[in-house]
Design a protein around this nucleic acid. Structure first.
Lengths: 210, 210, 210, 210
DNA sequence: GATGAATGAGTATTCATTCAT
DNA sequence: CATGAATGAATACTCATTCAT
C-alpha cells in the first residue's frame, strides 16, 4: 500500500471542496444566506457537517469562497484588455460577454443580488480581512472602479462623434441601469425572457449604446 | 383617577403601532427580514419585546402590515386614472410620479427589493391568506397585471407613430429594465445620484420613451 | 348623589367576584390550570385583566377560592350528622347524596380531578398557607380523615351482621374505589351514563354495600 | 482515530434516547405535561437542551414516543388471546395481569391519567397523524374497543349461569369502575396499598366478578 | 480525512402581573 | 372601581460550531 502522493490528496481535497461549494451555491442563491443551514448543505452534498469545517473556517468563509471563485471564473472568461481603451468593437463584444455571463452563471448572479443586497451579510464579510473579494487577484472594489473608468472613458470619447447634445454621464447611467434591470429580471424571472427576447435585448442595447 | 377613554386608548395604540412599524421598516430594509430580530426592533423602538405582540401577531404579520401600509400610501399618491388608456402626457406624468415615489419612499423600496428577493419570506407571506398584499384594496397581483397592461398598450399604440421598425415589446422591456436598474442603484447607493443626475435620468427617460 | 351604602358596594363586589370565579371554573375545568390564561377568563367574563387582580391576588389564589367555594357548597348540601355514627339509612342517604353531588357539580369535580392530579399545581397551593382548603371551616385534610373514619366505622360495625368472612377494610376499599372509578368516568365521559344506568349504579352500590 | 461505526452510533443513540425518555416520563408523570419544561428534563438527564431535539422533533413527539413505548411494553406483557372469547380462567388471569401491570408500570399509568385528563394535550396529540398511539401496531382506539367488546361478551355470557336477576351492563360497569378507582388510588397514593391489601383487592375482585 | 453527537447562545413567542390614568 | 398598555421572565425550538473517536 504505497501512500497516495500528495498531489492525489490535493486533488481529492479540491474535488470535495468544489462539491461543497457547488451545493452551497445552489442553496444560498435559492434560499438566501440566513435561511440556508449547514445541515442542509451537508445532507445534499452527502457529507457530514463536520467535514465542511475541514475545508472552510465558517459559514461566512464558505460564502466568501464561493463568491471569489465565481468572480475569478467570470474574470477569466472576460479577460478584457487591461490598460487600454475600449474600441466600439470591444464595447460590443463586452456587451455580448456580459449577457453570456448572465446566462451561464445565473445561479451565481442570484447569489450576488441576494447577498450583496443584504447589509449584515455583506458588511460582515467586508469587515473580515480574510474575506475580501478579489477578481483575478485584484480587490473587487479596485476592479470595479477600473471597469467603471473604462466604461466612462468610452462614453466620453463617444461624445466626439455624437455631438454636443450627447451627455456622456447620463448615457452611461442609462446604459448601466438597463443592464442591471435586465439582469435582475432575467435572473429572478427568466421565464419572461425566451431566447428570442433575450437576443433582441442584446442587439437593441448594442444598437442604442455602441 | 378616571380610566382612559377608549378614544385615548385608540390614539395611544395607533401611535405605538406606527412607532413599531417605522422602527421595523428601518431594520428590515437595512438588514433583511431574517437578520432583523424582534429584540433589536424593540430595543430601538424603546419598548419591551412583549409589547410588539400586543400589536402584531407575529414577525411575519408585522412585515406584512408595513408593506401594506406603504403600498396604500403609494397608491394614494399615485392615483392613476383606472379603466382608461395612457396619453403621452399621462405617460410622462407617470414616469415623474414613479421617480418621486422612489425618492420619497426609499426605505420602503429597499424593503421590497430585499424581501422580494428572499424566497422563503415572500412565499411564506403569500401562503397566509391574511397576509396577501393589497394596493388600494386591490390584490397586488391584480394591480400589477393591470399596470403592466396599461404600459403594454401604450407601447403598442406608439408603434403607429414610430413606424414599422419600432418593436413595442423590446422597447417596453428596455424601458422597464432601465427603471428597475435605476431603482436598484438609487435605492442601495443613492450617493451615486446627486439631484442633478436624478433629474437628468427622469428627463432622459421621458425623452427616449415618451 | 348620595353615596351607595357600603352594603350595596359589598353586594356588587360579591357579584363581580362570583362572575370571575364562575368563568374561571369553566375554563380551568375544561382546559386545565396551565392552559387557561387570565386573558381568556377576563375576555369571557367581559372584564379587564386588571380587574381580576382587584379581587384575587394571583391566578393561584383564584383557583383556591374556587375550590374552597365549591367545597363549602358541597359541605352545606351534605350536612352530615357530625359526631355520630352512621346508620344503614344514613349510609344509604350518604351514597345518594354523593351521586347527586356528582351530577350537580360536574364542572367542579372535573376541576378537582384535573388539578389534584397535578403535582405542581396542588403542591404549590398547599405550600401557601393562605391557600389551604377548608370545608365548612375545617381544613380539608382533617375533614377527609373524619369522613374516612365514619366510613371505616360503618364497615367495621357491618362485620357484626355479615359474619366472620366479612373483611371490612377490603370491603371499604372496594366501595370507595367503585365510587372513584364511577366519578372519573361520569365526569369525563358522561355520555356513557344515560340516566338509566346512572340510577342503576346508585341502586347497585346501595344493594351491595349498604 | 478511526471514526465510529454506524452500529456504534446507533447504540449511542438508543441509549441516549432511552435516557431522555425515562427522564421525561418521570417529569411528565409527576408534574404534568405543561408544567414540565425541556430545560428541566435536560438538566436532570445531564444533557443540553438542544440534544433532545436531535432525537425528538418536539416536546409533543417526545411524549408520544414515551406513551407508545409503554403501550407496546404492556401489550407484549399482556398478549391476550385475540379473536377468541374469554373463559372464566382467562378472565381471572386478565385481572391478575392488569394488576401486575399497574404495579410494574406505575409511572406510566400516572402519565396516562394526567395526560388523558388534560384536554389540549391529548387532543393535540390526536390531531397529529404521526402521533397516533398504537398498541402492538393496532391503533389504540381500535384496541380499546376490542378489549371492551371482550369484556362485554364475558359479562353477557355470565348471565346464563347467574340467572335472570343478573344485569350484565351494570355488573360490567361496577367491575370496570372498581378497577379504575383502584388504579387511580394505587397510582397516586400507593402508600394506601401495602402488599397485603393489594393482594386482597385482586382476590376480592376475582371472587366477586369472575 | 470523516463522522455525527453534543453544545449553548440565540430566536420568536407567551403570559402573569403591574401601574398610570 | 376599572382599564388595557406595558413589562420581563420564561418557554420551545434552531443552528453554527466543536470534538472525541
Amino acid at each position: 500500500m504505497s501512500p497516495r502522493s500528495s498531489a492525489q490528496f490535493e486533488e481529492m481535497r479540491e474535488e470535495k471542496k468544489a462539491l461543497i461549494m457547488n451545493t452551497a451555491l445552489e442553496h444560498f442563491s435559492d434560499y438566501g444566506f440566513h435561511a440556508t443551514t449547514i445541515s442542509h448543505i451537508a445532507k445534499h452534498a452527502g457529507i457530514s457537517k463536520g467535514l465542511m469545517y475541514n475545508y472552510f473556517k465558517s459559514k461566512e468563509e464558505l460564502l466568501a469562497a464561493i463568491i471569489n471563485r465565481s468572480l475569478d471564473e467570470i474574470y477569466r472568461s472576460f479577460n478584457p484588455d487591461r490598460d487600454s481603451t475600449l474600441t466600439p468593437d470591444e464595447f460590443e463584444n463586452f456587451i455580448r460577454r456580459i449577457f453570456a455571463i448572465f446566462r451561464e452563471n445565473r445561479q451565481f448572479w442570484k447569489l450576488i443580488y441576494r447577498v450583496m443586497l443584504q447589509r449584515g451579510v455583506y458588511e460582515h464579510l467586508s469587515d473580515d480581512p480574510d474575506a475580501t473579494f478579489t477578481v483575478g487577484g485584484i480587490p473587487l472594489m479596485e476592479y470595479s472602479a477600473y471597469m467603471a473608468k473604462l466604461m466612462s472613458d468610452y462614453f466620453i470619447r463617444k461624445k466626439e462623434t455624437e455631438g454636443p447634445d450627447f451627455d456622456p454621464v447620463t448615457e452611461m447611467l442609462m446604459f448601466s441601469n438597463t443592464l442591471k434591470g435586465f439582469a435582475l429580471t432575467y435572473i429572478f424571472a427568466p421565464g419572461q425572457y425566451p431566447d428570442e427576447y433575450f437576443e433582441k435585448m442584446v442587439e437593441t442595447l448594442i444598437r442604442k449604446y455602441r
